[in-house]
Design a protein around this nucleic acid. Structure first.
Lengths: 228, 228
DNA sequence: ACATATTTTTAGATTTGTCTAAATTTTATG
DNA sequence: CATAAAATTTAGACAAATCTAAAAATATGT
């Protein structure tokens, strides 16, 4: 458990960098490069260097010149708290405000910077302590603990295997709208019937429908690891 | 009705100035001085001049050098939309998030800058279209219309008159906590028994209790105008 | 009315977060 | 291993929002 010292608020920009660095670290454990952060943040490497120095000075990052960065324990905890806020707000927007799962990201990007621990804990209670957000991403608890799940990408399932769809790797609205259009939803059981070597597309069965999914689609659907 | 052109978002600072100018205009109709804005915003007159110029350039204010400012129709509408958001969020915090009326102001100051018309309209629906916020302040509707009410300050009621407490002029947490401690709440009927010339304090009856209220208190309680 | 006080504005500096362009360090290649 | 390529950092500039100090305009008092 991380104990918080009394400290000044971070700026929104600082919070956004921390979140980006956290996400990059999940995708690709180890040290994170300046260029990777710049791409993730849609900014220039020189801007990243400046910000990284500031965050390192404040103790959120471990940084060695030319060697890339790593979240410190303090930075990891802070990033998890921002992600907790983001995902709780997304859940709120879908569950209570009649938003669809492809509409919530941008607004949650704004709401995640609201500073009030009490508000977030009350929101959590109000939503009955949800474990995952509308995209299936796990919501960290108030201590920063995240429930880990056995999961795989649909594209990695073998023929004749099946899994329950529990999340999306890409939560862009275009991908989400594709899933809506093809009536693929979280909770659906997906059975892999065939895999095409040439383009890595797969034939699946969902309910009583057969669908052909491209690799781009299948590699962005997260399913439970189920032993057959 | 005001028709909105497609326009860039305002910064939070710009929004805060607009809101301050709106409030100053209500307190004291006519032209608003640079110094008054500086005091309201807890900043320096030179900073106000800079901002006022920008807001005037963007069409939110009428400004003549050395002559003070006025909200334009566009500025008034924008200010009302910010106030609508502020008061809806305050209502949300009290009604759904278990906040007390003295805790909500600062968080609503953050939330009022969230940019999403749909979110605000959904929030309005979710709260069943409230007419007033937890402090009794009226909530503008989505067109910027505010329900006007006949109201008076308690300190202006005559002896033997009575009124229903419908709002507070000062919503600082110290004043609100004073009211809580003395069990004075919105909706209470207050009967004026006596007025003391010397210090303008008044004796009132609320329910079956007699209370002595200083002028500072009585002049911050808003009551309905009731004819006897 | 005229000198003085007050208010308001301008000019120049500061901070945050960004940029471009140039310099430096690391990595890759022949 | 030397040199080219790529990645990273530095230096200097800019916009937003603020400040201080000085200048300009307006208001006030006798």
């Amino acid at each position: 458990m991380y104990f918080c010292s009394i400290e000044k608020y971070m700026t929104q920009s600082e919070e956004n960098y921390l979140k980006a660095i956290y996400h990059l670290g999940r995708q690709n454990p180890g040290v994170i490069s300046t260029n990777a952060i710049a791409e993730e943040m849609q900014t220039k490497p020189s801007s990243v260097t400046d910000m990284v120095k500031r965050l390192a000075e404040k103790g959120y990052l471990n940084y060695r010149k030319y060697q890339g960065v790593n979240l410190s324990e303090k930075g990891r905890h802070k990033a998890l708290m921002i992600i907790r806020k983001h995902r709780l707000w997304e859940t709120f927007l879908v569950e209570k405000m009649n938003f669809t799962w492809d509409e919530v990201h941008e607004i949650a990007e704004q709401l995640e910077h609201i500073q009030s621990e009490k508000l977030i804990d009350e929101l959590d209670r109000f939503l009955s302590y949800p474990k995952v957000d509308p995209h299936g991403d796990p919501i960290p608890d108030r201590n920063g603990d995240v429930e880990s799940r056995n999961s795989k990408l649909l594209s990695n399932l073998d023929i004749n295997a099946s899994g329950i769809c529990i999340g999306v790797r890409d939560s862009s609205s275009s991908f989400l709208r594709y899933l809506d259009k093809n009536e693929i939803a979280l909770g659906d059981r997906i059975y892999v019937m065939e895999k095409e070597d040439f383009d890595d597309s797969i034939s699946v069965r969902i309910g009583n429908r057969n669908l052909q999914l491209s690799h781009a689609i299948a590699s962005n659907l997260i399913v439970t690891q189920e032993l057959e």
